[in-house]
Amino acid sequence: MDAKITVNGILYDWECVTVVGPQGTFIGITEITWKSKQEKENRYGKGGAPRGVGRKNYEPEGSITLDPDEFDRLRLALGGSVYRKSFVLEVNMAPPDAIASAVTLTGVMVNDIDQSAKQGESKIEIKCSLRVGMIRRDGVAEYE
């Protein structure tokens, strides 16, 4: 592997992130999150020490926060309703002084939409929590 060492350079920041969805590149996006877990539990038998491990389900999830016009672009790309179709989100991170990486969220569906507006606010955003089928990091599935 060609390791690249940078001192006082630009590493990962919001400017190096590009998110692509069914409507193309997201412009009015202010946040994207993804996480996953697979809990393990000790399995016991005779005696007090664990004799093995039991695995629970792999659970990926995510969220996106969009400006209203970007949400409308996504909604139209999905045929008018964000709740009915699954889609793919690609998160590409390409900093000028570090190694590029990509995260792909597959089987994405919107679970809920959170939006509000109040006096004195300078922006209105729409936060969507996401059901995710699989997270791939640089093309490799987290769980198989």
Rank of each mutant, 00 (worst) to 15 (best):
Lys127Asn: 09
Glu142Met: 13
Ala141Val: 13
Glu125Phe: 00
Ile64Thr: 01
Ile124Met: 07
Lys123Ile: 01
Ile126His: 00
Arg137Glu: 13
Lys127Trp: 01
Arg131His: 14
Arg136Tyr: 13
Phe71Arg: 00
Lys123Met: 07
Gly80Tyr: 09
Ala102Thr: 13
Gly62Cys: 04
Gly62Glu: 02
Val88Tyr: 05
Phe87Ile: 05
Asn111Ile: 11
Glu142Tyr: 08
Asp114Thr: 07
Arg73Asn: 12
Gly80Lys: 14
Ser86Met: 10
Gln115Asp: 06
Ile126Ala: 00
Ala102Arg: 11
Leu105Tyr: 07
Ala100Ser: 15
Pro68Met: 03
Asp138Thr: 09
Tyr83Ile: 12
Gly80His: 14
Lys127Tyr: 00
Pro96Gly: 06
Val82Cys: 08
Asp97Cys: 12
Gln115Ala: 11
Gly79Glu: 12
Asp97Gln: 07
Ala98Met: 04
Ser63Gln: 06
Arg136Met: 13
Ser81Gly: 12
Asp138Ala: 10
Ala100Phe: 03
Arg75Cys: 12
Gly62Leu: 00
Gly79Cys: 12
Thr106Asn: 10
Gly62His: 01
Asp138Met: 05
Pro95Gln: 07
Gly139Asn: 07
Asp69Ser: 13
Val91Asp: 02
Arg131Lys: 15
Gly120Ser: 09
Arg84Pro: 01
Glu61Phe: 02
Asp114Glu: 13
Ser86Val: 12
Ala100Asp: 11
Asp67Met: 11
Lys85Val: 10
Thr106Leu: 08
Gly133Leu: 04
Arg136Val: 06
Asp112Leu: 07
Pro96Ala: 09
Met109Gln: 14
Glu61Ser: 15
Ser116Lys: 12
Gly133Gln: 09
Cys128Ile: 03
Ala94Val: 08
Ala141Tyr: 08
Val82Thr: 10
Phe87Ala: 05
Glu142Ser: 06
Ala98Leu: 05
Asn92Met: 12
Thr65Asp: 03
Pro68Asn: 06
Asn92Thr: 15
Leu78His: 08
Leu130Cys: 04
Leu78Ala: 07
Arg75Tyr: 04
Leu66Asp: 00
Phe87Trp: 06
Ala117Glu: 11
Gln115Lys: 13
Asn111Gln: 14
Arg73Met: 12
Pro68Glu: 03
Gly62Asp: 02
Leu89Ile: 14
Ile113Ala: 05
Val132Gly: 01
Ala102Gln: 10
Asp114Ser: 11
Ser129Lys: 09
Thr104Met: 11
Ala141Thr: 07
Gly80Asp: 14
Arg84Glu: 15
Ile99Glu: 12
Lys118Trp: 11
Leu66Ile: 01
Thr106Ile: 13
Asp112Ser: 14
Gly107Ser: 09
Lys118Leu: 11
Val132Gln: 02
Leu130Thr: 04
Val108Lys: 02
Asp138Ile: 05
Val140Phe: 11
Ser81Asp: 15
Glu125Asn: 02
Ala100Asn: 12
Arg131Pro: 01
Arg73Leu: 10
Gly139Tyr: 06
Asp69Glu: 10
Pro68Lys: 01
Lys127Arg: 12
Ser86Arg: 11
Gly79Tyr: 13
Met93Lys: 03
Ala102Val: 08
Gly133Asp: 09
Asp114Arg: 08
Ser63Phe: 01
Val82Met: 08
Thr104Asn: 09
Thr65Met: 07
Ser101Lys: 09
